[in-house]
């Protein structure tokens, strides 16, 4: 897909080096990763713990540098200032300064994203509205539940109107109603042309939102399943996932 892709991994490997008492250990994060996400496409990342899902996302953000291969965001190398301006990221279990309010937190992230003071007020209100947090906009986040922090995380992610969203476990800690609202929101974003890369253990959620699902096993893309493979029978993606990862899980 090359330049047309919102996000592309081309033969990407990431090795982590750990040194202890003069001995260096190499742990493979991802290996020979090839994956593309097009504009308006939602791609799910499935994998067991430690399979490389978070590493894959961090590589796109420039938080990690690839050992080999290239990660391109809208055709430019990942990590550049301009590429990050067009991206939104929701980490797993996001943490925010508890002494700040959601509005203040979003103001900080908005300003860091280059939004002007004039448009910021409206954007903050809109983002909080989208995640159902308008009523808590000016309450300090001390004592916020996991689900509420997740909503703040999603709001900061959407604030600057990104064209590529990287979501790491986006429904973690949410109640069933919030999960349904988040799902609708993701579908609307995808329909609006936003590219989505979603890492999750919630296979049923990915099944409902994603066009494709990349299954990672031991840092490699073991299989990419298209929606047509599971859309006919609900729960089929889980079967595909289990079939794919079971041999490697057993071998480990």
């Amino acid at each position: 897909m090359g330049v047309a892709s919102a996000l592309s991994y081309d033969g990407v490997s990431k090795d982590y080096l750990y040194s202890h008492l003069g001995r260096t250990t190499v742990t493979r994060g991802v290996a020979e990763l090839n994956l593309q996400v097009a504009a308006g496409e939602a791609v799910g990342l499935l994998g067991l713990n430690g399979s490389g899902k978070t590493t894959t996302m961090k590589l796109a953000l420039g938080l990690l540098a690839p050992t080999r291969g290239a990660v391109l965001v809208f055709g430019s190398p990942a990590g550049g200032r301009e590429t990050r301006r067009r991206m939104g990221y929701l980490p797993e279990l996001p943490y925010f300064q508890p002494y700040l309010t959601p509005s203040e937190t979003l103001r900080l992230f908005g300003r860091l994203s280059g939004l002007g003071a004039a448009e910021l007020g409206g954007r903050i209100a809109e983002s909080l509205e989208r995640v159902g947090l308008s009523a808590q906009a000016d309450r300090r986040m001390t004592g916020f539940s996991k689900g509420m922090l997740q909503r703040v995380g999603m709001a900061q992610c959407l604030l600057h109107d990104p064209q590529l969203l990287l979501l790491d476990e986006p429904v973690s800690g949410l109640d069933p109603l919030a999960i349904a609202e988040f799902r609708d929101l993701l579908v609307r974003l995808r329909e609006a042309g936003v590219a989505l890369l979603i890492a999750s253990h919630s296979i049923s959620e990915l099944e409902r939102v994603c066009d494709r699902a990349a299954i990672l096993a031991e840092g490699r893309v073991a299989r990419v399943a298209a929606q047509s493979e599971w859309s006919a029978s609900p729960g089929r993606l889980e079967d595909i996932f289990v079939e794919t990862v079971r041999p490697t899980a057993r071998a480990a």
């Binding site: 953000l61 420039g62 301006r85 991206m87 990221y89 980490p91 996001p94 992230f109 860091l112």
Partner: peptide
């Protein structure tokens, strides 16, 4: 440790 640095560095901040 809290990973809040990810949220800052994922913005256009060097």
């Amino acid at each position: 440790e809290t990973k809040s640095i990810y949220l800052i560095l994922s913005r256009p901040v060097s």
